[in-house]
Simulated assay, not measured.
Amino acid sequence: MLFDRGVVVSYKTIRRWCDKFGAGFAHRIKASRRKPGATWHLDVVFVTLRGEPWLLWRAVDQHGVELDILLQKRRDKTAAKRFFKRVLAACPEVPGKIVTDQLRATRLRKRRSPNWLIHVRHVFVKASARVNNRAENSHQPTRERERRMRGFRLPERTQAFLSNFGPIRQHFALKRHRLPASRYRQQLALRFAAWHRFTVPTQNPSTAL
């Protein structure tokens, strides 16, 4: 249809557009969000990139808001420290409690822990206890997107895509089943108004180039 109207578009146009503006949109959304809750939930899930297993580390607060993600090859203490450092850089507010499963890599000894982590209450739970459901449920949109995209390919592109996908998806992910129709439409209108502010650079072709 575009070709019939004289518009020539590469099949990579959308990907290039996302690469150029996605990170900026995600950053503006994160900056506009309320402060993270005092309880953080951490979980690790396997993803397959061209047949190789990788580990996706994810942290969310008690409200289910994604704090940060990091794709890594290993699941050791070095990887855990790297992820904790990344999360703290994105969320300067130190949590009061961190909830994780019984993964040994997250059990950093105090002498090896960052200074801010020493005074944080660390809770380890069994998978069957369902206490860490906040983090485990946050993997579902990633799994759905993985199926739609028929799997991920390169680690760098997967990291970049998921880092932008999470905040942008959550910006529009209202709990519709908990809101009356009028309230839902009102909240959605506010979200779209904020989205228009975030995407101002792309609304003027002369400034978007």
Rank of each mutant, 00 (worst) to 15 (best):
I29S: 01
L56I: 06
W54D: 01
L2D: 12
V47G: 07
F84M: 15
F124W: 02
I168W: 05
E136K: 07
A189Y: 05
I69Q: 10
E146L: 09
T202I: 15
A26S: 08
V7A: 10
R157Y: 02
D76C: 04
S113A: 15
L117V: 07
D43M: 03
A89L: 10
T100H: 08
G22P: 04
L162N: 13
Y184T: 01
V8K: 12
G151V: 01
R143H: 00
Q140F: 08
Q186C: 12
I14C: 11
Y184W: 05
A105F: 02
V7S: 04
K12C: 10
W40D: 01
A80K: 09
A173C: 14
T199P: 03
M149L: 14
K85P: 00
L108W: 06
I98Q: 03
N137F: 11
R191Q: 12
R86F: 01
A194W: 09
K20G: 04
P95T: 09
M149C: 08
F172E: 06
H27T: 13
K73V: 12
V65M: 03
H27F: 03
F21N: 13
Q140N: 09
H119E: 14
K73W: 12
R16G: 12
D19H: 15
C91M: 06
H196N: 08
H196S: 08
A26F: 09
